[in-house]
Nucleic acid binder design. Structure first.
Length: 477
RNA sequence: GGCCCGAUGGCAGAGUGGUGAUGCAGCGGACUGCAAAUCCGCGUACGUCGGUUCAAUUCCGGCUCGGGCCUCCA
């Protein structure tokens, strides 16, 4: 099997993946701040790292995937103040919405999903270590990380302290020793969530929670840290600084993976810009929409920017229609250990080993589709086989089985094909079948006018007929 | 202003130092009573100016344009 290689943001180059413990791969991905519905941009890392995790699971005996829930944050506080809804209600509801939306996109839950508020003691312990190690200081109820105490600061995001100050947009506050120092702990007034600590009643800064939760579930060193590219600085830079300084000699994450931004009209989709569309908006388009959006995301390499349009969503849907048309056929099922099926599936997935090249893997899925169509419906795959350098002559059902297996690793094509094609209002199924039988009778009698009239009537109610060698099948448009 | 990334045919999007993926749309053919589905075939591309090379879309540099980060942000 081809060895895995990923682009490591920390070194800005492609590196062979060698886990710290080949028996147990560990990864941490930054999760949502639960104050509002997830937007399309929020969904990208969830889908991307879902595929990565599925890939790792089929190659390593054990994988632990941790993704946090940030349920203490000033944006949540602000939302509660605006709406009057209690914080706990907002975070509980938003977390449930997030789970539902991500499941609709075919994402499996992480192994651990810690909440920040359940790990305050860990954060306090971490901050105490940082103070003891001379990397943090308390001032006016705040605790700050001293950036100048850590020589490696800026290495991850590739910027020097001078460069960061050149922008001169860092917040200057009287309690800071240096402008670049960032908050680990801050005081809370009575109306705000707070926890008792050695520095008084307060709440954690944003960055410290990920350091605390990755430490708890994965230890001081683990394999992969993922997240959106916009988190590289300052969030991940600060996380790294905190963790390495709290545990001298440790390296924190070995590989840093960052997904590119999702754009709309050429601009980053974000809540602060107000140009976002929620996942829920997409899902409301129909039962097909979740998987179509997932395919849309995976048709672009994870590190590239992706411009979202509704046309692309429709295109992804049409492509899934074609895949499901094939899978809906009554095909013979190959043996469990069919060698050709395994070989074809492995070939289709091979591109994932090269920095998660999902677009190329999807191209190979299409090739498997053509091979199955040729085997089942007829035609020639000579040029296709020559292009891919293979001599496969799969029998009916073999390429389809490989397609199913390979697509499963991408989290695609898992829907029941009949449900995909004929889902929706189910109470007219008998009437449709009856109409098809009537049309068949008309065709036998060569009454083409009547046959076409029935077909047109069905089309008017959104039902498309397909006359195949095995009889007539139908789907909803 | 600083740092980073990108620029491929009508659209989307891989990849490669030399015989130019793939999908959608378009065109032609096979099949079909006619369609649909399916199969086969066709066309247009590598932002720009230089450099290296026998050979560059692919490597290097300048320029232009676009995006991201530097502040909450997936």
């Amino acid at each position: 099997m081809t060895e895995l290689a990923f682009h490591n943001s920390a070194t800005r180059r492609r590196e062979i993946f060698a886990p710290l413990d080949p028996q147990h791969v560990r990864l941490y991905v930054c999760g949502p701040t639960v104050y509002d519905l997830a937007h399309l941009g929020n969904a990208r890392p969830v889908v991307v790292f879902d595929v990565l995790t599925r890939l790792l699971r089929r190659r390593y005996p054990r994988v632990t995937y941790v993704r946090n829930i940030t349920d203490v944050d000033d944006k949540i506080n602000a939302r509660a103040q605006e709406s009057g809804e209690p914080i706990s209600a907002i975070t509980a509801r938003t977390t449930a919405d997030f789970h539902r939306d991500m499941a609709s996109l075919g994402c499996l839950p992480p192994d651990e999903e810690p909440r920040a508020t359940d790990n305050i003691d860990r954060m306090v312990a971490l901050i105490e270590r940082l103070i003891a190690n001379g990397h943090a200081y308390a001032a006016e109820g705040h605790v700050l990380f001293s950036v100048s105490s850590y020589l490696g600061y800026g290495a991850l995001s590739g910027r020097s302290t001078e460069e960061m100050l050149a922008g001169a947009r860092v917040e200057v506050a009287p309690y800071k020793r240096e402008p670049g120092d960032f908050v680990l702990w801050k005081p809370s007034t009575d109306g705000l969530p707070g926890w008792d600590s050695p520095w008084g009643r307060g709440r954690p800064g944003w960055h410290i929670e990920c350091s605390a939760m990755s430490w708890r579930y994965l230890g001081t060193e683990f394999d992969i840290h993922g997240g959106g590219h916009d988190l590289l600085f300052p969030h991940h830079e600060n996380e790294l600084a905190q963790s390495v300084c709290a545990f001298p000699g440790s390296r924190f994450a070995k590989y840093w993976l960052h997904n590119g931004m999702l754009l709309v009209d050429g601009e980053k989709m974000s809540k602060s810009l107000g140009n976002f569309r929620t996942v829920r908006d997409i899902l409301e388009r129909g039962a097909w929409a979740g998987e179509a959006f997932r395919l849309l995301l995976l048709k672009t390499h994870y590190r590239a920017a992706l411009d979202y349009t509704v046309e692309r969503l429709d295109e992804a849907r049409a492509e899934l229609d074609d895949f499901y048309a094939l899978l809906a056929r009554d095909l013979p099922a190959p043996e469990e250990d069919d060698a050709l099926v395994a070989e074809m599936a492995e070939w289709a997935l091979e591109p994932l080993a090269d920095d998660l090249n999902t677009p190329l893997a999807i191209t190979r899925l299409r090739d498997l589709r053509t091979l199955e169509n040729v085997a089942t419906v007829g035609g020639s795959a000579t040029n296709l086989l020559s292009r891919i350098g293979r001599t496969w002559q799969p029998g009916s059902g073999q390429a389809a089985a490989a397609l199913r297996a390979a697509a499963g690793v991408l989290g695609l094509l898992g829907t029941d094909p009949q449900a995909w094609r004929q889902g929706g209002a189910a109470d007219d199924t008998a009437a449709i079948e009856a109409a098809i039988a009537a049309r068949l009778a008309a065709r036998r009698a060569k009454d083409w006018a009547e046959a076409d009239r029935i077909r047109a009537a069905l089309a008017a109610q959104g039902v498309v007929l397909e006359d195949g060698p095995g009889g007539t099948t139908w789907r909803r448009a």
